[in-house]
Amino acid sequence: MSNLSREDVAHVAMLARIHLEDAELDRLAGQLDQIVDWVGQVAEVASADVPPMSHPMPLTNVTRPDEVRPSLGVEQAVANAPQAEDDRFAVPRILDEE
């Protein structure tokens, strides 16, 4: 595997919504290639019959009753907003998509 190209990094950065300047991209791409190469060693062990582990503790069925708890209140809710308008979060124009 591995050999993460500069283009790969640019694509992944796009997926991760991080705008990287060219110089930044150059620097990170080199480091990431090395890291990806190294983490790829996980392929050496763990055959198909080993189950994957997503949670360290084997808990199941943790739920809460359907009971209303107090909400924050709108002042608190929008208090940290970079911009708010009419008790709502003001965000820049959204590209075409519903």
Binding site: M1, V39, G40, V42, A43, V45, A46, S47, V50, P51, P52, M53, S54
Partner: peptide, 13 residues
């Protein structure tokens, strides 16, 4: 599968 999936198997080991 090659990365995250495989890492989770290592976690089991």
């Amino acid at each position: 599968d090659a990365y995250y999936g495989q890492a989770q198997k290592v976690r089991t080991l």
